[in-house]
């Protein structure tokens, strides 16, 4: 088996696993029955897979697969697109917050081997980082608030 087909086989496997985790998670957390949500989940996973294929075969455009996935779904769901109504009908069965839980479960585990490095950084770096996060966030929020008021949206 070539390296690329092995890679895509792994991607498909991880996508399927994630899909099952989301379906079970949103059944527990958001009362979404599993069977009626399957068609929507298949659509979501299909787009995710296409995003991975585009990223692999169009490396000239430096766009992460996450952005490709958003872009495809965005185009399919614009109001004047004939695909919008059926596409949204099915994908609405996949709960937004439900898709976040498995990601963060994996993300939590994945930072495990970096905790040692954190201990060597010390508390100063931690404090600075908190101010970096807050400054970035509130800097944007203040600019947005001013422009949104000025343009009459809020």
């Amino acid at each position: 088996m070539s390296e690329k087909s092995a890679k895509f086989k792994n991607y498909s496997l991880v996508l399927l696993i994630t899909g099952v985790m989301i379906l079970v998670g949103q059944w527990i957390g958001y009362d979404k029955a599993i069977i009626p949500s399957i068609p929507g989940m298949i659509l979501v996973l299909l787009i995710a897979f296409i995003a991975l294929v585009i990223k692999e075969y169009v490396p000239a455009i430096k766009f992460p697969a996450f952005a490709w996935a958003s872009l495809i779904a965005f185009i399919l769901s614009m109001p004047f697109m004939p695909t919008a109504a059926p596409f949204l009908k099915y994908t609405n069965e996949v709960v937004f917050l439900g898709t976040t839980t498995p990601i963060l479960a994996f993300a939590g585990i994945s930072v495990g081997n970096k905790l040692g490095e954190f201990k060597t950084l010390g508390w100063k770096v931690f404090i600075v980082a908190i101010f970096v996060f807050s400054g970035t966030f509130f800097g944007s929020a203040i600019v947005s608030h001013i422009i949104l008021s000025a343009t009459g949206i809020i």
């Binding site: 792994n10 991607y11 991880v14 996508l15 994630t18 899909g19 989301i22 979501v44 996973l45 787009i47 995710a48 995003a51 991975l52 697969a65 996450f66 952005a67 490709w68 996935a69 958003s70 872009l71 495809i72 779904a73 965005f74 185009i75 399919l76 769901s77 614009m78 109001p79 697109m81 919008a84 596409f87 949204l88 994908t91 609405n92 996949v94 937004f96 898709t99 976040t100 498995p102 990601i103 994996f106 993300a107 585990i109 994945s110 495990g112 081997n113």
Partner: peptide, 28 residues
């Protein structure tokens, strides 16, 4: 397993990416 989890995160993020697209599209 910790190393493998990193790969899983990259792929597991994609369904969320799709959901964000479906939130922006109708509100274009």
């Amino acid at each position: 397993e910790v190393d493998l989890a990193g790969t899983f995160v990259m792929v597991a993020l994609l369904p969320l990416g799709v959901k964000y697209g479906t939130l922006v599209g109708p509100n274009i």
